[in-house]
């Protein structure tokens, strides 16, 4: 069930120079949201910016009936959002989109986050640990940033007790290189193979790379994709990704377009074609 509601901003926290965490009071989203879902938020009451902006659900608190988003200031919409004050109300549509497929077997789970990709994966990691279906030792979290100061949530990851491996492009913390390089290097050590569930979110280039690697090694990897989303409801066909079904049905191998907002944002990495 999708809701449209005016929700109250409970808190706004600046985590790094351009990263913010907002908490909203919204029982419907707190209760309904699953890892991978997103909220579509109206930024302004006038016409700039005109359209809503999409943000992954980063955390929920069932008792306090709140949900959080984590975002980076990249343009006007996120700038305005970062200036919203506690007590203000925002028009939110949510929870939207599909969610990560949660494995019910005992198997290795690898979460691969690049930059802002941490947002949906943090929610997933907490969800997995809380569900207690999977031993936390089975969960690895690979997390890449450009540089040391960009990391967020490290304390939370530690608390969750999942195996965390960090990497920076400039080598200021952890492994040096991109998170996809780390993924490749640690493939064997982390037990990444056919029976493993991989979850990944990050910039478009990284998603393309993860998709290529998943195809090459035939890995089950779920990507959380992003694009401009005018409606977020499946109505406008504006948010599509090229999709090729990977199974044995008659439609297998045929390219179509899928809407990221309702058929996604979570897709099997072997089934999408990214530029």
């Amino acid at each position: 069930m999708v809701f449209q509601k005016k929700v109250k901003l409970i808190s706004s926290e600046k985590l790094t120079s351009d990263l913010f965490r907002l908490r909203f009071f919204c029982p419907e989203v707190a209760k309904g949201a699953k890892p991978g879902n997103f909220a579509h938020i109206r930024i302004s009451q006038n016409t700039t910016p005109l359209l809503r902006r999409a943000f992954s659900i980063f955390d929920v608190d069932l008792k306090k009936k709140t949900f959080d988003i984590l975002f980076k200031v990249v343009g006007l919409g996120t700038k305005i959002l970062s200036e919203k004050k506690k007590g203000e109300s925002l028009d939110v549509l949510g929870p939207l989109g599909n969610s990560f497929l949660i494995s019910s077997k005992e198997q290795n789970l690898v979460l691969v986050a690049g930059g802002m990709g941490i947002a949906p994966l943090m929610f997933l990691a907490s969800y997995l640990v809380k569900s207690e279906k999977i031993k936390r030792e089975k969960i690895s979290f690979l997390y890449g940033e450009k540089t040391k100061n960009n990391f967020v949530c490290l304390g939370q990851l530690k608390k969750l007790g999942v195996k965390t491996v960090l990497t920076t492009e400039d080598g200021t913390k952890g492994f040096k290189g991109k998170v996809t390089d780390l993924f490749l290097k640690r493939r064997i050590k982390l037990g990444i193979g056919k029976n493993c569930f991989i979850y990944s979110c990050g910039p478009q280039k990284m998603m393309k790379k993860m998709s290529e690697l998943s195809k090459k090694y035939d890995l089950f990897c779920q990507l959380s994709l992003e694009t401009h989303m005018p409606c977020g409801l499946g109505a406008c066909f504006g948010c599509v990704v090229k999709y090729i079904k990977n199974d044995t049905t008659p439609l297998a191998g045929q390219a179509t377009y899928k809407r990221i907002c309702v058929d996604g944002p979570i897709f099997d990495a072997r089934e999408v074609e990214l530029d």
């Binding site: 910016p49 359209l51 694009t227 005018p230 406008c236 504006g238 948010c239 599509v240 090229k242 377009y257």
Partner: peptide, 23 residues
């Protein structure tokens, strides 16, 4: 109809452009 390749939309001052292509 599958429609046009993405990106299909973008925001412009007080408006938006679309090239859905009758999907």
């Amino acid at each position: 109809r599958e429609g046009n390749p993405p990106p299909r939309t973008c925001e412009t001052p007080s408006g938006m452009l679309n090239s859905i292509g009758l999907a």
